[in-house]
């Protein structure tokens, strides 16, 4: 049985390099979350997304700004 989904914050990126920069920055700043394959409900195809709790939104936005990573979009979706 697949595990129960919960509402999460999912950040998508233009490139894999941006996704990796995001992961590195989040790790450095102890911002919880992890990289996941981009969910179909956001975009069919391939690529990585950063998945975190909804409460992390502001911190993630700060990190994105600080490292100069341009996110494709920030979604709230069931993951």
């Amino acid at each position: 049985m697949m595990r129960k989904k919960t509402l999460k914050l999912v950040v998508t990126f233009h490139t894999t390099a941006d996704a990796m920069a995001m992961e590195k920055a989040c790790k450095t700043q102890n911002a919880p979350g992890r990289l996941i394959p981009v969910p179909r409900q956001i975009s069919a195809g391939c690529g990585l997304a950063w998945c975190a709790e909804l409460s992390e939104r502001e911190q993630l936005q700060e990190i994105l700004r600080a490292v100069g990573v341009e996110e494709q979009a920030m979604h709230e979706c069931m993951v």
């Binding site: 996941i36 394959p37 969910p39 179909r40």
Partner: peptide, 14 residues
Amino acid sequence: DYDSAEVSDELLVT
């Protein structure tokens, strides 16, 4: 109808 990304993630995590 599961999203393949979701199944793949589940295979890894679990």
